[in-house]
């Protein structure tokens, strides 16, 4: 019985492929017909802003660590109010493989994928994007998350003033 199954398993596929030879292709001819990508499509990356309109990215280097092809580079810096931000932020899309691992690593939801995929060019430097080209005016897919309000350190609110925090301890008292 096993042998019969093997033989069937070897020869039946020939019939399948032969039938498929005469079917209509399911692919479409690209530049003439463009299919709208799915909402979660992983295309060109953008840096988003938080609901307060500030840059979400805190230059934590996690995306650059997660990127398997090392195409993100940046330099962190500190603003006068203590906010950590990226002094510069560069994604080299000529290297990016659009795996989306960086967006998964991003703890602030700053880095997000978009549906834009038509990036091909002959000018390599055009796809080396700096922060001003990456930063958009908007929250992207998540309109609520605001890292600094939940981080537990005081930057957007006085220390101890964010939700879920008690006011700072007075270290000079021993009263309970």
């Amino acid at each position: 019985m096993g042998l019969w199954k093997d033989i069937k398993g070897t020869f039946l596929p020939f019939w399948v492929t032969l039938r498929y030879l005469f079917r209509r292709p399911v692919t479409v001819c690209y530049p003439e017909r463009k299919q709208p990508p799915a909402p979660r499509y992983r295309g060109r990356l953008v840096l988003t802003r938080d609901p307060d309109g500030e840059e979400r990215c805190v230059a934590c280097y996690l995306c650059s660590a997660a990127c398997p092809v090392d195409c993100i580079s940046m330099q962190a810096a500190e603003r006068e109010d203590g906010r950590r931000y990226a002094a510069w932020f560069r994604i080299n899309f000529s290297r990016c493989i659009f795996c989306g691992l960086c967006t998964e690593a991003c703890p602030t939801l700053a880095l997000q994928t978009t549906a834009e995929y038509e990036l091909a060019t002959r000018e390599l430097l055009q796809v080396v994007c700096e922060k001003d080209e990456l930063l958009i005016d908007g929250c992207g897919k998540n309109t609520e998350y605001n890292f600094y309000r939940l981080a537990g350190i005081g930057v957007v609110a006085p220390r101890g003033g964010n939700p879920g925090e008690t006011p700072p301890e007075d270290i000079r008292t021993n009263m309970p």
Partner: peptide
């Protein structure tokens, strides 16, 4: 071409 059609693609066109 033939492989393409067998896999329901167009192949080079």
């Amino acid at each position: 071409k033939i492989l393409g059609r067998m896999q329901m693609r167009y192949g080079p066109n």
